[in-house]
């Protein structure tokens, strides 16, 4: 896969999310980890332990920022104070790219703190792309948008979710953080073939991949990030890297977090697929 602005992070390997229960272990044991993903909002503070921990992590590891509250799909302008704080953090971490979700979550200055689904319309794609461009121009760092898991669909939608994603990223000229667990969750909730999604995104724009576990209920699946990755999601991951090549991969585990070694071990399972891909590439 040729290098391009969105898919040249082939040396990033496999990372995990930096989470509070693992701080002491990481700082004391300094385990070998390719990189850590941080939730930007957890470190957009003015001081104290979060930043002190982050600085210690930055001395040892590469860090990539992932946000949960930019709400690219909200037609309201981004909050300037939010952007200024985020930019300060970008300078501190020197993140090579920054990701947030293709969703909305606030309206009229009130925040739901959720990643709410978009209506898949051309008009919404235009509005979203404009906001992504504005944020990227302010932050001066490549931006990637992540597909969310969803539980509802809108009557007004004019296209599939992956067509909407393509429409947005082409208009915004930005990268994709492809969450294969979210694709699986949404495919079960909305009855589509998840491989159609993975096959339908522009491979050259995928800068990062997320993998995670979820919870199954009788009538739907909830994206809970509190279980190991299941086989069907690994199969989607395998297909994704066949298409996009070796790409920065991250395991999300946010609730009922087990030991650092267990989380890291789960993430490293991705290696067998990356290794298989490399073997196939060598043979070819």
């Amino acid at each position: 896969m040729p290098a391009n602005p969105f898919n040249h992070f082939t040396d990033y390997g496999i990372g995990i999310g930096l989470r509070v229960p693992h701080y002491d272990h990481i700082l004391a044991e300094k385990p070998t980890v390719d990189w850590f993903e941080i939730i930007s909002e957890n470190f957009m503070c003015e001081g104290g332990r979060p930043l002190q921990i982050l600085d210690q992590i930055l001395e040892q590891y590469r860090v990539v920022q992932h946000g949960v509250s930019m709400y690219f799909g909200s037609p309201e302008k981004p909050d300037r104070e939010h952007l200024r704080k985020l930019k300060r953090l970008v300078r501190r971490t020197r993140t090579p790219w920054l990701s947030d979700h293709l969703c909305w979550g606030s309206v009229d200055g009130r925040y739901t703190h959720d990643l709410l689904p978009m209506p898949y319309t051309f008009a919404a794609a235009r509005v979203t792309a404009q906001k992504i461009r504005a944020v990227r121009d302010f932050l001066e760092v490549p931006v990637c948008v992540e597909n969310v898991s969803s539980y509802a669909e809108f009557h007004v939608s004019e296209m599939t979710e992956w067509e909407f994603l393509n429409e947005v990223v082409e208009r915004a000229d930005c990268g994709i953080l492809l969450d294969v667990n979210n694709i699986y969750v949404s495919s079960r909730n909305h009855n589509f073939n998840p491989f159609d999604y993975v096959n339908g995104v522009p491979a050259e724009r995928v800068a990062q991949i997320h993998i995670a576990g979820h919870s199954k209920f009788r009538k739907y699946i909830l994206d809970t990030h509190d279980h190991p990755v299941i086989d069907p999601v690994w199969k989607l991951y395998e297909r994704a890297i066949q298409r996009v090549g070796r790409t920065a991969t991250l395991l999300e585990w946010d609730d009922r977090i087990p030991s650092f070694d267990e989380v890291h071990g789960e993430a490293l399972k991705a290696n067998r697929f990356l290794q298989r891909l490399e073997n196939e590439t060598l043979k070819a």
């Binding site: 037609p75 309206v107 009130r110 739901t112 008009a123 509005v127």
Partner: peptide
């Protein structure tokens, strides 16, 4: 366009 998107999101946020 913006107004229509805004109205839809306002309605959904109200319910949520």
């Amino acid at each position: 366009t913006r107004r229509a998107l805004h109205q839809l999101q306002r309605l959904m946020a109200r319910a949520v």
